[in-house]
Design a protein around this nucleic acid. Structure first.
Length: 841
RNA sequence: GGGCGAUUAGCUCAGUUGGUUAGAGUGCUUGCCUUACAAGCAAGAUGUCAUAGGUUCGAGUCCUAUAUCGCCCACCA
């Protein structure tokens, strides 16, 4: 027997280990149809947050649903080495230990990193278990695993041989703190206060000057020209002349280039090809020298004279002071401009000329765009609007910088000897070859995740059976980083989309709608919520709170009320279990209330399944919720209390409860397992039971209507009873020979009379149910007001409906069925009005 | 500058191919310890569906503008 109160701690304890020990999570039954999902691998940098809990619960619900539907499901767990993020954490830890991370050998550093990985990976696994995720751990992967690393190498080498990976010297995003290159996606632009420094660039042999406005005066050491627009009347005659670079006192040319916008600033641009992507292009067009003036750590280099070794910001300050002293500074104009920051370290990005490896994106992106036009092979986003994000990215994308100056990651399979470059899976023969020190962008390996995890290289049975994945679940913020890249890599290497569907959810925010972040201190640990309310409550809340693709404002009160719902389920189950101990498996003799609940139940199965198929888990969850509360608890159980000795009642209670538990199981695996296991004569575990199917034989539309009317009648009766402050002394007359037995019991009617009484009365009727309540009390003023109000609203409704039906357009154009329904409603309302008006007199 | 989303009850959110009294949770009011559950039950009140036009017999839903909030992308010498 169940305890009186639901206790999530007791219910959830030990269940996960039990599931594991029975190998329920493992795939491989080839008699069934396969269904696969790979988990978005969390970073091994820390704890899982609420967003992970949401994302993984969605997947677990789909997986459990499909498993119960009879699929051979595979949900691949795994973690991501998260190059720059993890390296930053490991470095910080080493610094804490008094070790300078750059002073130790790479091999030694990697030992620390791997032990970090082990520790955090264990944490993550514990959290997955707490959440109840049915992951197949026999297939677990890590992005730096040997197998995955081989795939990474294969992909790199293949793309290189196909001319889609190249090494080149370009302006890249440089993070001076992590001291590595970054891709465009890893740069976050923020509006920050800054200034336009207006500087005099003196014309050679003249007292005249060009006014150059720049936000980054410290880069002037790298200036190799100033540019004006060739069509700019103010300056076009100066093209070809020279100016003196301030402070440096070097001559540089004035060039004409379209890049200079006459309407922006002063119309004169200093050109620093090594420190600005646009200037780099200008430099290429005019064959300008590229002078790097900043060190990788953000300090000024030897090209900067006395400013050498100063930090770039300090240099700016000093330089501006000196320009002012030299009377070369015209003015400082304060502005707000957007400046790139490193996603990980938040350091201001330095556009930096550097030799890096790139993926040539155009051909790969075009293939995605082409494929998305084919409805049979495209990636189907849910909701569909997110496809636009991918397509837009594919249209504007440019070459992807994939080399990172880090230690934690896949080493680039390239070797150098003098000017020779060798790219291959294995090191080249012969002496003197030195491997590239750099590693690949984390997302390079993540992009292969849907197939690298399935042993793609070996064309393994796993790969053949479970690829492509059926669905990928992730947040919309990850589409550019990950979904897009998985898609082009999959198309190129597997000749297939990586997954048929891509279910997109939003971000979790706090109650005020702000992003959860460490700096705001508004983060919530899912483990704390599980401790307080249970994983089941957390899972149900997260997956039913909002519709797909929308952000979720986390509200602990709502989570608490989900706990209440589970407690309700618990108690309803308790009631059923108390009454079915002596159940007999005999043929059924269905009463009309049994037929009613079975009809509602089968409709619910149909609707829930429909929503589950569409991944509208919020609608599915709410559908079950409403069925449990409104139909099962509030009505059927109340009806059943009067026929508990009837074996058919027991059978119906049992069947419906089992179905409820099964439908809820994907959402709340623990409590449904607990209750299901207490049902007599059940030996299977709920997670491998069959998902309920809607059965036409159990749909009784007439009885459903009849009992629905009865329920409505009961409500109206209670309303009359309560609003008129009636008490048990009332006498009730049933005005026709319908079956009032159940009504009598439910409404606890004690005194029944057979003929009219000559005292005050109310008439209560709905459809064919019609009773008169006699009472010995005067109507109060409030009672009369209420009656008058009801009459007025009914009159308004009748008037509106009459108008509608008199409208010839409506009658002729609307479906006949609808017109008939309206006509019928009008008749009912008129009848009701008559009754109410009788009460007034 | 380009795009996306949101705007519905005090709050948090649903709302299907347009169908006529717009739903849920929570909160609020009133009455109940009715032996599954007071963490509960019963009944109730609360909406110009952001604004303005349009299409339609009929619009929360479709179209066109506008406003406010949020996000993404691009540019920013």
């Amino acid at each position: 027997m169940l305890d009186k109160k639901y206790n999530h701690l007791l219910v959830e304890e030990g269940k996960y280990d039990n599931w594991l020990s029975h190998h329920y999570f493992e795939c491989g039954d080839t008699s069934k149809k396969p269904y696969s999902i790979v988990i978005p691998p969390p970073n091994v940098t820390g704890k899982l947050h609420l967003g992970h809990a949401w994302d993984t619960t969605l997947q677990d619900i789909i997986i459990r649903f499909k498993r119960m539907q009879g699929y051979d499901v595979l949900w691949v767990p795994g973690t991501d080495h998260a190059g720059i993020a993890t390296q930053a954490k490991v470095d910080a830890k080493l610094k804490n230990m008094g070790i300078n991370p750059r002073q130790i050998k790479r091999e030694e550093w990697l030992k620390y990193a791997w032990s970090w990985k082990d520790e955090y990976h264990d944490n993550i696994k514990k959290q997955w278990a707490k959440l109840g995720l049915s992951l197949d751990y026999t297939k677990e992967r890590f992005t730096l695993d040997a197998g995955l690393s081989e795939t990474v190498k294969h992909v790199f080498v293949t793309l290189y041989n196909d001319g889609l990976i190249y090494r080149g010297e370009k302006i890249i995003n440089w993070d001076p703190e992590a001291m590595t290159a970054l891709s465009n996606e890893e740069v976050i632009y923020k509006d920050v206060p800054g200034a336009f420094y207006h500087i005099k660039y003196m014309l050679k042999d003249s007292n005249d000057y060009l006014e150059v406005a720049t936000t980054r005066p410290e880069t002037l050491f790298g200036d190799t020209a100033v540019a004006v627009n060739p069509s700019d009347e103010r300056y076009k005659d100066l093209i070809g002349k020279t100016v003196i670079l301030p402070i440096v006192n070097k001559e540089i040319p004035i060039i004409g280039d379209e890049h200079a916008d006459p309407s922006f600033g002063t119309g004169v641009v200093k050109i620093t090809p090594a420190h600005d992507p646009n200037d780099f292009e200008v430099g290429n067009r005019h064959n300008l020298e590229r002078i790097i003036v900043i060190n990788p750590d953000g300090t000024m280099n030897e090209k900067c004279g006395k400013y050498k070794d100063m930090d770039r910001f300090q240099c700016r300050e000093e330089l501006v002071k000196d320009l002012k002293d030299a009377n070369l500074l015209i003015k400082i104009e304060n502005i707000t401009h957007s400046v790139g920051h490193s996603e990980r370290t938040n350091a201001m990005i330095e556009p930096y000329l550097s030799k890096q490896w790139f993926v040539k994106m155009r051909p790969l992106a075009d293939r995605v765009l082409e494929n998305q036009k084919n409805k049979d092979t495209k990636v189907n986003f849910i909701p569909p609007r997110f496809e636009k994000i991918m397509n837009h990215w594919m249209e504007i994308t440019y070459d992807w910088c994939i080399s990172r100056q880090l230690w934690w990651g896949h080493r680039i399979p390239a070797w150098y000897k003098g000017n020779d470059v060798y790219v291959g899976i294995n090191p080249p023969e012969g002496d003197g070859w030195v491997q590239d020190e750099d590693v690949l962008d984390t997302w390079f390996s993540s992009a292969l995740w849907p197939f690298s995890t399935l042993d793609y290289l070996d064309n393994s049975p796993l790969y053949q059976r479970y690829y492509p994945n059926n669905v990928l679940v992730t947040g919309y913020d990850i589409i550019p980083f990950w979904v897009n890249r998985m898609t082009f890599q999959a198309l190129y290497f597997t000749n297939s989309r990586p997954f048929e569907k891509c279910l997109i959810h939003g971000l979790i925010r706090d109650k005020e709608g702000r992003k959860m972040s460490k700096s705001l201190g508004n983060g919530i640990d899912p483990m704390d919520m599980i401790e307080k309310y249970g994983a089941d409550a957390l899972r149900f809340y997260l997956t039913t709170a909002v519709s797909n693709g929308m952000d979720l404002k986390f509200d602990e009160e709502s989570l608490k009320s989900t706990w209440n719902f589970i407690n309700k389920l618990w108690n309803a189950s308790r009631f059923v279990l108390m009454n079915i101990e002596d159940i007999n498996e005999e043929p059924l003799n269905l009463k009309k209330v049994d037929k009613w609940i079975l009809t509602r139940y089968n409709d619910t199965i149909k609707n829930v399944t429909k929503y589950m198929d569409k991944f509208e888990l919020n609608n599915a969850g709410n559908e079950i919720y409403n069925f449990i509360y409104n139909d099962f608890c509030d009505n059927y159980i109340e009806f059943a209390k009067f026929s508990l000795e009837d074996n058919t009642t027991k059978m119906t209670l049992k069947e419906v409860l089992m179905g409820i538990l099964k439908m809820l199981h994907p959402f709340m695996p623990y409590v449904t397992d607990e209750i299901y296991s207490k049902i007599p004569n059940i030996n299977e575990n709920i997670m491998i039971s069959n998902y309920p199917l809607s059965d036409k034989k159990n749909i009784f539309k007439n009885e459903e209507q009849e009992v629905s009317d009865l329920i409505e009648f009961i409500r109206i009766y209670r309303k009359t009873y309560q609003e008129n402050h009636l008490d048990k002394s009332i006498q009730v007359k049933f005005n026709n020979d319908r079956d009032y037995e159940l009504i009598k019991k439910i409404l606890k009617i004690q005194n029944v009379v057979n003929s009219n009484l000559n005292i005050a009365s109310y008439n209560v009727s709905y459809k064919e149910y019609d009773v008169t309540i006699y009472y010995e009390k005067e109507q109060t003023v409030e009672d009369k007001l209420q009656l008058q109000k009801d009459i007025e609203s009914l009159k308004a409704s009748i008037k509106k409906r009459q108008g509608l039906l008199e409208n010839q357009n409506f009658v002729s154009k609307a479906p006949a069925e609808l017109v008939q329904k309206e006509t019928q409603k009008l008749e009912e309302e008129k009848l009701e009005l008559k009754k109410l008006e009788e009460r007034v007199n």
